[in-house]
Design a protein around this nucleic acid. Structure first.
Lengths: 223, 223
DNA sequence: CGAGGCATCCTCCGCAGGGAGGAGGGACGG
DNA sequence: CCGTCCCTCCTCCCTGCGGAGGATGCCTCG
């Protein structure tokens, strides 16, 4: 069994060196290359075919999310581990949707990084506990239909937002939703904007898809 | 700082004893009670107010998911860690939607259980790597490659139109669909216009809803 | 052969929808 | 009482989408 081949991607050379030292201390991990930005990451991922791409999320030229998207889209065998300083919600969701296999917060212990790399190389996925938490919140609250007082935490949809998402998922336009809910169209747009923001979605179509996939809405054909 | 108070819930006494031994070996963890089923779990969660409810998912009378739902709905301070033998998708999502804070596969090392309990008690959440993997798949699908043939009941549509509708139902924009299918954006718009016309739909959102309702696309949450 | 269906592509145009940013009021809990 | 969350609504702005109305080439089938 060969060593796990890792590509380091970060715009700060010192950070790269730091990670290199941490990783090279492990006998079963080998750093095969470095890149300073997203573009370089995609290029080297192509030529080096590393097992793991360890990628910072914030970088010049092309950020980690876009680079991840391309690496995954090209069908490269590398699996991407995203590193971030902050656990910003939008970035998490973007990165996961881009196809990242792991999402780690930098302030964790060095062990957790090494463990994560081994886990991902073995075909599984890893999220920092804090990141996992915000993800679970989303799942937890999307499905709560008539649950009155579930303590609403970060990222959860409010009651009104669920109303709007339901109407949205029936194919109604903003004006129609406004009419049905008895509010202004601007209000509907605000609610939708919040839904999109909370889940890192781009438009109402993706919101409808999420509603179906998470069971908020059940397809007519199958119940 | 007091010890982490744990309630054990499993229908098999031997399993409970096993977990008790594992947990009691940790100085900062205290097993304060046991329950053989979901009903007992809710009742003891109410009276004991444990920090953690360690719950098997498959049990007689009331299963772990329903018990989790009630504990969360009642606003009890306990956080629920779900244990399962298999990493069945449906159960994962159900449990997460019910409000579980962690989801572990039983075949993991004892360490991971103890770690998970500490992490959850600290306010974060944990998922088994394999479970995380299937979760990420769900998030990633919005940008993922298309699934192979699904028998469609949308006979009126041409082959290309079905391709487009499928891409549409993954939340892609016209430009992205064009890129993926290797055609111009105008062509995509033409196909979409035909789809809308054939079914008397107003916009792409309604087309996506139709795709789900007719079974062209199967929700990630329920297959 | 000609007619039709399909797939590809084009322009011009209007508007719904989404981003950014703000603002006010009501409810609830520390 | 103040902070926080929710709901409500506003303006300005810009882009993506869909409508209308074409054109071209390639099939197949009568």
């Amino acid at each position: 069994m060969h060593a796990i081949r890792v590509l380091l991607v970060d715009d700060q050379p010192m950070i790269r060196t730091g990670f290199r030292l941490i990783l090279e201390a492990e006998p079963d991990i080998e750093v095969v290359g470095e890149a300073p930005d997203g573009a370089g990451a995609v290029e080297r991922a192509r030529s080096l075919c590393p097992d793991i791409v360890l990628m910072d999320i914030r970088m010049p030229h092309m950020d980690g999310v876009e680079a991840t998207r391309r690496i995954v889209a090209e069908g490269l065998p590398s699996r991407v581990v995203i590193l971030t300083t902050f656990d910003l919600d939008a970035h998490v969701v973007d990165a996961l949707r881009a196809g990242a296999s792991a999402f780690l917060v930098k302030d964790g212990p060095a062990d957790s990084l090494v463990d994560a790399i081994r886990t991902v190389a073995a075909g599984d996925s890893v999220l920092s506990p804090r990141v996992t938490h915000s993800l679970l919140d989303r799942f937890a609250h999307l499905g709560a239909p008539a649950a009155p007082d579930v303590p609403s935490r970060l990222g959860a949809l409010t009651g009104r937002e669920v109303d709007v998402l339901r109407a949205l998922s029936r194919g109604l336009s903003n004006a129609e939703i406004a009419l049905e809910l008895g509010v202004g169209e601007t209000t509907v747009k605000t609610h939708i904007a919040h839904i999109l923001e909370k889940y890192g979605l781009r438009d109402r179509v993706q919101a409808v898809i999420l509603a179906y996939d998470c069971g908020l809405v059940v397809p007519r054909g199958r119940r």
